[in-house]
Structure formats: structure tokens, C-alpha cells
Design a protein around this nucleic acid. Structure first.
Lengths: 121, 121
DNA sequence: TCGATAATTCCAAAATCATTGAAATAAAGG
DNA sequence: CCTTTATTTCAATGATTTTGGAATTATCGA
């Protein structure tokens, strides 16, 4: 995941209406929710919600599909997995490579870092 | 971790200079870096960097300590761990609780979700 | 105490982001 | 074809964020 993509995903989630909408979609799971249902749940005007959903979609966090008159939004779990992978690998303890062996708090590397797993298989 | 704290941390990281600064500090590890060293590495005017470091500190992502004339910044790994925990528990697959048993991709619940931990209901 | 160094805080301009009503678009159902 | 329902796009407005120079604060060494 490139740095500018990460910024996009973080920025998309760093807004209360958008984080709420995303969480709602995660709760709804694979089936997703229609835009109207989200607007009602979050008590937002349709046009405001549309703006926020576009941001989430642009960041790759959610997908859109049409079902009759409704547009159904659902989470793209892979994007979140990639974000978590990035943060774990690039922004967490044991990541720098500059630590003096035997120094520090003695906490071993966490699973993904130790095994060299990446979030984008 | 409360929802508004998460927004604060995400917002703090969702800016390229700040994400770069934070990554630099993670690389530097526990020893940290002086503000001037960060400013030089990122090629930023001192006052701009100061603004960004304040944002990161306010979000709890970094700590500040004085060493002589220098102010040394270092990452607070626990804050990042909490963010990753929140995203894993509240924003990832298997988190909703609304899935039909036996349906879906057959991926089992992750640790925190399985044990019934919640991030702040 | 003075001068130099390392930073921050202050401030105003510039840029970006969020919000909303109204108009436009798309699909369904008479 | 016309109406209803669902949602997006547009344009205007207000709010927040980012920037960087100038002023300020803290520390050190002579």
C-alpha cells in the first residue's frame, strides 16, 4: 500500500459521519445497506450522506451496487485489512530496524511482523 | 477507545507531513528525534513542523521530552496499538454480529471478537 | 550577563473540507 | 408516457486546516 493511499483511507475514516457510516456497513456485513437506510440511521440529509459515501468509496473502503431503485453500499474488508497491515508493519514497535538488540522493553515482535506476513496476499 | 478519540488519531495521521514524521519517529524508536532533526529530514519550516508535532502529540501518538535546548519527540506505541485494536474489533470482517451462521466466506472470528471484547459499546 | 542556538507561539493568508437545498438522473410501476 | 421513489450532482456558504514569517521563550557556554 502506497503512502498516499494510506492517507486517503485514514482521511476517509477521520470524520465522524463517515466512521459511523462505515461501522454501520461493517455491522450490516456483506448484504450492505441502501443509501436511504444509512441516511435515516445517521439522521443526515441525503445529499450530505452521498458526499460522505463518495469519499469512502473513493478511498476504496466501500463498494456500491444497484438493486432496483436503491444503491446498496457494503464494506470492502480487504481495504481495511490493508490499512491495518500498513499500520502494523510501518507504524508499530519493532518496525524501525534501528533498535539495539537486547535494549528496550523486551517486548517481542508481534505476529505479522515476526512472520513477515503482508496484508495484501 | 472512544469514537471521538479514534477520529482524533486518524485525523492526526491523515496528513502526509504528519504520517512521515510519525514514521520517522517509529524508525528512530525509543530514543526519539529532536524537532530540528525532523524538520531537516522532512524539509519543513520549523513553525509548520511544530504545528504538526502538536497535532500528533494531542492525539497521543507521540511524547515530548526536553534534552538541553532540544525537544525530543518519540512515538507512544500504545496509542497505535489501541488504534489497530479499535479497527480490528470495530471495523473489520466478523465484527457485526449480524451474519447468518454458515453463510459468508467461512472466515472464523478473530481473537478479540470471539472472546466478546468490545471497544466501547 | 550576553549572545547564540533550538524551539514554540502568534498571526494572517491561502487552501481544503463539510453542509445543504435545489435541480438533474435513473429505475419502476402504472 | 407520466409519476413516484431513490439517489446523485451542483453551487453557494461557512468552517477548519495548513502555511510560514516574525516575535517569544528556554537553555547553554563563555
Amino acid at each position: 500500500m502506497r503512502g498516499d493511499e494510506v492517507i486517503g483511507v485514514l482521511g476517509a475514516l477521520a470524520q465522524d459521519h463517515r466512521l459511523s457510516a462505515y461501522r454501520l456497513l461493517v455491522q450490516a456485513g456483506h448484504a450492505g445497506l441502501a443509501a436511504g437506510a444509512i441516511a435515516e440511521a445517521l439522521d443526515l440529509p441525503a445529499s450530505s450522506l452521498s458526499f460522505h459515501l463518495a469519499q469512502l468509496q473513493q478511498a476504496g473502503l466501500i463498494t456500491q451496487r444497484r438493486d432496483g431503485r436503491s444503491l446498496i453500499y457494503a464494506p470492502d474488508y480487504a481495504a481495511m485489512a490493508r490499512l491495518i497491515g500498513y499500520l502494523t508493519e510501518n507504524c508499530s514497535r519493532g518496525t524501525g530496524g534501528g533498535e539495539v538488540p537486547g535494549y528496550g522493553e523486551g517486548v517481542p515482535l508481534s505476529g505479522a511482523a515476526r512472520t513477515g506476513e503482508t496484508a495484501t496476499p
